[in-house]
Design a protein around this nucleic acid. Structure first.
Length: 692
DNA sequence: GAGCACTGC
């Protein structure tokens, strides 16, 4: 084992960007607690916002937009005039768990029942009362959706956007719409809560084109412990290996405290934990009894006394809920948890008790290339903001240390922030929604960060080709309706087409099933082979769409139980989500008078209907087992999860749900079709719009 | 014959 030398430039003290306290996190939704006055007092002390409420209220009264730096939660604004007489305060979060857990806490603090004065609204769950709720926590996507119904958001007097620095797609869209709303309705007050680095740009955004007093910035003290940052003197060629070495050294030289390692994906996490457990028996079996004379091995004896037993744990989104919850078990005395995690641990999941962070400095990020219309998943260096956030994970309950597996010079060269999601995503759905809001001139829309012009163009072209917008650039009647569907544009288009093919019932299920990820759980090794056999029971020879339909129907038939899923290699969480999505989409189908006819086992009709949504995604089988795309003749590899992974389709032609570039260009969720069906749509397209 | 960062409606 090589010795590691880290250079320690000093402690990051209060006032730095590390000093940010986040109050909203917590993965586990708490049950509504009943507070004694003592614990209520304790809660207040934990919420700096309570201490600073007068300061915030003062700003909110004086300025249209208040940017709050370093603090979250809107606590006591409830008791101000802003929440009286039919006025409601909205408070948005980028994630569902955050929206619910903050609502639970604030309800307890205010001393009301959840869903009464304080409530929350997230997809599939509305725990609020139209008349009584004064402060409503919600996801930013939910509030954006509300603008489609009430474009001025007239029921709200104050809107607070929390975690704005994360720059989620809907945070950005919401900020853009809110700036527009404030011109028409200046009485609406905004509070934007962000980390230090972005505060000024938010303030500049809201003051540009208005008067300089429009926005103000206030800074609140955080409550976090200092985190010492150590850098490697040289970059490691293999950061997984290096992470293992660093963890082992921490284990030898430092006292108690859990270790959190940031890696990029499941494969790395598994390798890291494997190498780590390989080390454990190496040292553990050399217990003092088996060492002939400890005096002869001073380093080893020191090691044996100093080494704490480690508990290796993985944390990534692919795990079941049970497996994810294991990271919250408190380590027994004399042991420490070593958690190898993806970016999920950066903001979504907070683990207290972590004293050491080991940061690889890399992250997997999804980017959309508008030129090729391809989404790609690639490993890139993290941003400084991200690295800072990761380091902060070591100082939640006590002072900590963050080991960065790269030199400080590399940190200095990292981009300041991760590019906002809106700049690296397919804009088709967002643009349809903005059009539905009456924003027809996208050139005039004030983006916080503009998406690439090509992205906007590509989206407009696609919407035009799909008949969602007309020659005048405005929404067509069907475009208006599709904009309301909480699903991808082309899938929504397919739901409308089901009317012509008499298969609404089945297409609805397929629409829900393609919206979830990973319906099947196929683990590695021997259990994987058994799971594979289970999956074959659902396999339809026509392809994956029908296989998913079979799985869904079996799931509902056999009682929607978690144990049944376990037996049949299905992901219970994902399947339950599909049930919720289906019932939500069904409401829209009824509203738009789309019949819910069954195709009565006529798979041909079903496949024809699929082509109406997916005709742009056609491909042809070639002898080497890969496919060539109809559009662009690109080589496409079948994803190994497909039932057509090993089989040549009878007709040689397929449509697919999505394509993604990883190491290869892969297509997921395939169905065999007749080439004529594709041509029919192609002709229509060519005929209607000559410019492809 | 082989693989999946993370959200959201």
């Amino acid at each position: 084992m090589s010795t590691l030398t880290f250079w320690k430039p000093g402690t990051t003290g209060p006032g730095s960007t590390l000093d940010r306290a986040t109050e909203d996190e917590g993965n586990v939704v708490q049950s509504a607690p009943s507070h004694s006055s003592l614990s209520l007092q304790a809660q207040r002390e934990r919420l700096p916002i309570w201490k600073h409420r007068q300061k915030i209220l003062h700003c909110v009264e004086k300025h249209g937009v208040t940017i709050v730096v370093g603090q979250t939660g809107s606590g006591k604004t409830t008791q101000s005039g802003w929440a009286s007489e039919g006025n409601v305060i909205a408070c948005t979060q980028p994630r569902r768990v955050a929206a619910t857990s903050v609502a639970v806490r604030v309800a307890a603090e205010v001393g009301t029942l959840l869903g009464d004065e304080v409530g929350y609204t997230i997809r599939f769950e509305d725990v609020s009362d139209k008349k009584r709720t004064r402060i409503c926590y919600m996801t930013d996507g939910m509030l954006f959706r509300e603008t489609l119904i009430d474009p001025l958001l007239s029921r709200y007097s104050v809107i607070m956007i929390d975690e704005a620095h994360e720059r989620s797609l809907y945070t950005d869209l919401l900020l853009g719409v809110l700036k527009k709303i404030r011109r028409k309705r200046p009485s609406l007050r905004l509070i934007v809560s962000s980390a230090t680095l972005d505060a000024r740009s938010f303030s500049e955004y809201f003051t540009s084109g208005t008067h300089p007093d429009e926005a103000t910035i206030i800074s609140l003290e955080g409550r976090m412990y200092p985190v010492e940052v150590a850098y490697l003197q040289e970059s490691a060629p293999d950061y997984v290996r290096k992470a293992v070495e660093v963890v082992w050294n921490i284990n030898l030289h430092h006292g108690t405290g859990d270790i959190l390692i940031f890696l990029t994906g499941r494969e790395e996490i598994e390798r890291c934990l494997e190498e780590l457990t390989e080390l454990i028996p190496t040292f553990a079996h050399l217990s003092p009894l088996f060492v002939p004379d400890a005096q002869d091995y001073p380093p080893l004896s020191r090691l044996l006394r100093g080494a704490t037993q480690i508990i290796p744990l993985a944390l990534h989104a692919g795990l079941s809920t049970e497996e994810q919850l294991r990271v919250f078990n408190v380590a027994e005395r004399g042991t420490r948890k070593v958690i190898a995690a993806t970016n999920i641990a950066e903001a979504s999941v907070t683990i207290d008790g972590v004293k050491f962070v080991v940061d690889s400095g890399f992250v997997k990020i999804r980017t959309y290339n508008p030129t090729t219309s391809l989404a790609s998943l690639s490993t890139v260096p993290v941003s400084q903001a991200s690295a800072t956030q990761r380091a902060g994970r070591a100082g939640r309950t006590s002072p900590g240390i963050c080991y960065r597996l790269y030199p400080e010079s590399v940190f200095a060269s990292l981009p300041t922030n991760t590019p906002p999601e809106i700049t690296r995503t397919d804009m088709t759905t967002p643009i349809l929604q903005l059009k539905s809001l009456g924003i027809d001139d996208l050139m005039k829309f004030e983006w916080v960060s503009a998406p690439p012009a090509e992205s906007v163009l590509r989206a407009l072209e696609g919407l035009f080709a799909a008949g969602m917008i007309g020659d005048d650039g405005r929404l067509t009647p069907i475009g208006e309706q599709v904009a309301e569907f909480p699903i991808d544009v082309h899938i929504a288009r397919m739901l409308f087409a089901s009317k012509d093919f008499n298969c609404g019932e089945e297409i609805l299920t397929i629409a829900a099933m393609v919206s979830i990820q990973d319906a099947f759980i196929i683990p590695d090794g021997a259990p994987g082979a058994i799971a594979e056999l289970e999956r074959r029971k659902f396999t339809a020879e026509e392809g994956d769409h029908l296989t998913l339909l079979n799985a869904y129907n079996a799931f509902t038939k056999y009682g929607r139980s978690s144990s049944w899923c376990k037996m049949h290699a299905l992901n219970f969480r994902a399947m339950s989500r599909a049930v919720s999505i289906r019932s939500q989409l069904k409401k829209y189908m009824i509203r738009f008078n789309l019949p819910l006819h069954s195709c009565e086992g006529d798979a041909k009709r079903l496949r024809q209907c699929l082509v109406s949504g997916y005709w742009r995604n056609g491909a042809r089988w070639v002898a080497d087992g890969t496919y060539r795309s109809v559009k662009g003749n690109k080589t496409l590899f079948v994803h190994p999860t497909s039932v057509l992974f090993t089989r040549k389709p009878r007709t040689g032609w397929i449509i697919f749900h999505e394509v993604e570039e990883t190491k290869k260009t892969q297509i997921r969720i395939l169905t065999e079709i007749e080439p004529d069906w594709l041509l029919d749509h192609g002709h229509k397209y060519q005929h209607k719009h000559t410019a492809v």
